[in-house]
Amino acid sequence: MSKKTAVQIDDLTVAYNYKPVLWDIDLEIPEGVLMAIVGPNGAGKSTLIKSVLGILKPIAGSVSIYGKSYEKQRSLVAYVPQKGSVDWDFPTTALDVVMMGTYGSLGWVKRPRQKEKKAALEALEQVGMLPFKNRQISQLSGGQQQRIFLARALVQDASIYFMDEPFQGVDATTEIAIINILKALRKANKTVIVVHHDLQTVPEYFDWVTFLNVKKIATGPVKDIFNDDNLTKTYGINYKVSIQK
């Protein structure tokens, strides 16, 4: 592979109690791919992302972002958590949430100013949410909330984006809007890693895929490895999807 490696994961093992959720994961994600992580419920997909981002502490293993530790490369990485992980009745506006994406580069104590606000407005525009900038977040639809989260990550202007089920519970319009943004990111040579549930759309949306079920089953280009064999190994049943190649 001539491409640079964006994310390198070595021997990653994570356990919540006694049972490992992730077992000895080795994974190399090349720069500029749009990658889906697929696997059944409880396969450790979200856990993988959270461990890379340092939200969870792994038992063993290491993660490097462009060859250096995540702590040093934080500014290169953006995160879109699951929509359901926050309280949307929080008293704040759409613009305010997107502004949070600038907090990291601001660092402690410094307040966001005109420059940060401008960046946030641009990100809102990008996801088609500019008309809703002053809307209280509880009054947004599920799809709109997801777009706000995406805009917040876009503001970070990162090189690598981790997204936890960005398509969950959104309507078709939002799904198309989101995938177009992801494809635009890939075009700009950004690396996008997405926890994804809908196997049918994998070949259409993604060019790279990782099969995960506690252990890594396979990783590589969708056209080479997205086949019944790997799906069966991952999901444990004889999975047949008609895949247009």
């Binding site: 939200i55 949070m100 907090y103």
Partner: peptide, 17 residues
């Protein structure tokens, strides 16, 4: 700003450093 982001989205605040 730190209080606000902690209240709204703790994990995300973590990833921002």
């Amino acid at each position: 700003k730190e209080f606000k982001i902690l209240l709204f989205d703790k994990d995300y605040a973590n990833t921002l450093g």
